[in-house]
Amino acid sequence: MCAVILPPRDPAPSRWAYRLQRLWLTPLFRTAVLKGLPLAVLLAIPAGWLADADRREALRAEVADIRRQVETRPEFMVKLMAIEGATPSVDEDIREILPLDFPVSSFDLDLKEMRRTVEGLDAVRSAEMRVRPGGILELRVVERVPALVWRSPEGLALLDAQGNRVAPIEARGARPDLPLIAGRGADKAVPEALHLIAAAGPIGSRLRGLVRVGERRWDVVLDRDQRILLPTRNAVATLERVIALDGVSDMLGRDIVVVDLRNPDRPTVRLAPEAVEEFRRIRRLQAGATN
């Protein structure tokens, strides 16, 4: 009874088993299999599903539909617009340039763009917009305050203190309370004009307006066609000088057509033609001549 003893199993790995084990112990390969492979599978499943154009289209439609449903919920709807701080005419203008068709979803409102549009209006200095709870689009407007009437080649216009156009007007008589300026480029020097008008307070009753000459200096026009020609620089101080002279010697009350201060070192006055005659006559009389 001889038992057949099998030779002990050879423990040696085959060449391929050995190589595979070594490959498996290679860090790069190991990382690639353990982390890269699951990641690749996870990416490949959706990618394979999306490879079909119809499915992509359906998915896009689905997403758009859900988005629309959320956007059109009543919580997000804007039902009306409230405008604060605007006069009725500006209010009307704003409602005209903002083409809103209420009710509208607040997702569809581009507040920045709308604000830019509203601030593009001449009469609006600044605007704030927000969607208030309750579906109200609140628009808070600060209007420009007209400070001057400008007679320009294009017609009459109101300007605010910074020289921005506020609105056109039909006639000077519509705003008799505002001072008048004229001349090309006058709107660029509105702050100086306002200073001059303030400085001309003592002769305010006689002031007709200011004229911008050559886009660099001002003429002060008084009634009786009197003009004060101011220099380019230090116009306000020069005007105050003139007013002081007027206060001392009632200069402007005399028959003078032009007070020329374009060169402040050499003030010049021009008399009216009759006054020149009269002046010459008086000089002759004083000289003792008889005619």
């Binding site: 050879d10 040696a12 050995y18």
Partner: peptide, 12 residues
């Protein structure tokens, strides 16, 4: 084969 056996076991 003997070397392979030893190396594989040690690597393992």
């Amino acid at each position: 084969r003997a070397i392979r056996t030893a190396v594989q076991a040690a690597q393992k």
